[in-house]
Design a protein around this nucleic acid. Structure first.
Lengths: 338, 338
DNA sequence: TGGGTTTGATAAACCGGTATAGCTCCCGAA
DNA sequence: TTCGGGAGCTATACCGGTTTATCAAACCCA
């Protein structure tokens, strides 16, 4: 028989549908003996719950969603999302909950997706990335009453659950390391200005500058693309008092920056030190290999999944979980200034 | 009222549930006037179908799945999948069908997922990538009666629908171009040997070699990782009669190969020409920028989605659609041999 | 021994749609 | 004048689970 239903199991076990449902969901209402028997039969018939039927009755679909709002062009090279995804899945697979992934162009599209998901009951909750300042998605999700967890930023005052790492401390560690090497002119090629993590990193650099006696520590924002990363680097290296070290907010921009340095004949790390605020094979493929901040992105995703499941189970308690601090992996692209 | 049902619409319109269902699905059974009225009310109440309910009744879930069986570590850097995904989604969004994405470690895990999806009715069909020789997934999907479309390889003799590009012609174009430049020692750093497209490319090189008067044209297989790509390159460049041109089956390996050449002091393109059989920002970030074979991966995905939807609608006709031929984008990494 | 509670189970309602049998008009043809 | 047939709609079964009301038997303590 193809695809047995609980009714089939019920007939075979000589009990009612209800009893089978109780047994399969481990809830009281049947004796241990009966439960045992039902479970064995279900196993034999290789029964699996029909997700739609269960969703209809129990009003939960065992599925969560994640929307990434970045142009596909820039997305692929960043291993960040692939690792994050794998992590999220590993966190979900234990409960055999599936993941819906959607790549959209912008935040408006993302909100549209949330509305659709909510009204069609397609997901039990969502995972948010790239939180911005005054992020409209937070209010929207509140309004939709869709459980959510924010990755990489506090969800605001009691608003949404979150999983975050300490960007500030990480950035301080980088700048302090460069200062200790002797650098006094450090530039920061940041990401999109309205991302919360961008702002935190910029603030960290600004705050540390006077304490470390830095002559200059500009933070320059970009759209996270290789093109802008390269353009800003070109500008920086053309200045009379050019920086002796540059910190990039992503590995892709760091690679682009390295390319510009080579093109302009600026030796790395002899005349310029480069640090990437994110690690991946990309940084290791380069010559010189790039010093980078390594975060356990996989674990990040895993924890986000866990927190989301907890939030779905009990939407009243808002969890804010801090993950392991990122560490600086020193490679060949950093050295004392020439 | 939160989340209206068709029953709510029915009461408000003063008709039966059935009439509403007919009207909303654009099928005969109601007059144009009534249909109009019902649609307007549904719009007003911002009704959306409950996906689970629809799935239960109509035994279709408006959702398709895609499983990628590669270690997450190697996945991220390859823009291929990100582009493919976006394309697939754009093909699906028109019908507002959602996509389930899963990254697993190996084919066994992938088949497991298909079994689960089939038994839980979670997807209407799946998209297959990285087809291997004698691929076990094909038979499995046949057995599960799960509609499927294969990307980048013919689905076998009438087995599964497919969307494919002509790898053979593309590889011939590359080799002919290199031969025309004057290269006679061309090496081919291929991917995983049991992938069908790897085999097709290897065969193309082997077939073209005598005709083009190549002295040597070895194809060396790898696991597609940067590490093996680098290792093989090191070996090739250490030979007494080292190749004057190398074709890499992926952009990541080509980048790794370029790194090895630089590390060994082999000038590119002066002493060695490099071609990547896949294009992305990665190849453009390099110095020199890599000559690469550009495929419209986005469109590839879009077409796969279309073919899959057709296959779901009518599983009896097997579609094998050939996509636009890839083109060779010449950049700075190819030149006549020194 | 009798009344109240617990245990183990059943039958039926329900979730929100789709599919279908059947009913009522109304129109046209025999 | 009657009958056939189609258009337009209703009532209802159904999909495969979950949940609740109900009930009989067993159990418990006085």
């Amino acid at each position: 028989m193809a695809r047995p239903t609980i009714a089939d199991i019920a007939t075979r076990a000589g009990v009612s549908k209800g009893a089978v449902s109780f047994a399969l969901n481990g809830r009281p209402g049947v004796s241990d003996a009966t439960r045992e028997r039902i479970l064995k039969i279900a196993e034999q018939m290789s029964w699996r719950p029909h997700s739609a039927a269960r969703a209809l009755g129990a009003s939960r679909v065992d599925s969560v969603g994640m929307v990434i709002a970045r142009p596909a062009r820039t997305l692929g090279v960043e291993p960040f999302f692939a690792h994050l995804l794998s992590g999220v899945q590993s966190g979900l697979s234990a409960e055999s909950i599936s993941l819906q992934l959607l790549i959209v162009e912008d935040t408006a599209g993302e909100i549209e997706v949330y509305r659709r998901w909510a009204s069609e009951h397609r997901v039990d909750g969502v995972i948010l990335v790239d939180l911005t300042v005054k992020d409209p998605r937070v209010d929207e999700l509140k309004a939709l009453e869709l459980p959510a967890v924010v990755i990489g930023g506090r969800g605001g005052k009691g608003a949404l659950a979150s999983v975050w790492a300490d960007d500030r401390d990480a950035m301080l560690a980088i700048v302090e390391y460069l200062a200790a090497l002797g650098h006094r002119r450090i530039a920061h090629v940041a990401g999109t200005p309205n991302f919360q993590h961008t702002q935190r990193r910029i603030r960290a650099v600004r705050d540390a500058a006077p304490r470390l006696g830095l002559l200059d520590a500009p933070s320059l924002t970009t759209d996270f693309s290789d093109a802008e990363g390269a353009a800003i680097t070109r500008k920086l290296l053309s200045q009379p008092d050019r920086p002796t070290a540059i910190v990039y907010d992503s590995d892709v921009m760091a690679v682009a920056g390295l390319g510009v340095a080579m093109e302009m004949g600026v030796a790395v790390p002899g005349e310029l030190s480069i640090v990437a605020f994110d690690d991946s094979i990309l940084t290791q493929l380069m010559h010189p290999a790039l010093t980078a901040l390594s975060r356990d992105t996989f674990d990040f995703g895993r924890q986000a999944a866990e927190v989301l499941l907890d939030t779905i189970a009990d939407p009243t308690t808002v969890i804010n979980r801090r993950t392991a601090d990122p560490v600086l992996t020193v490679r060949e692209s950093t050295a004392p200034p020439g």
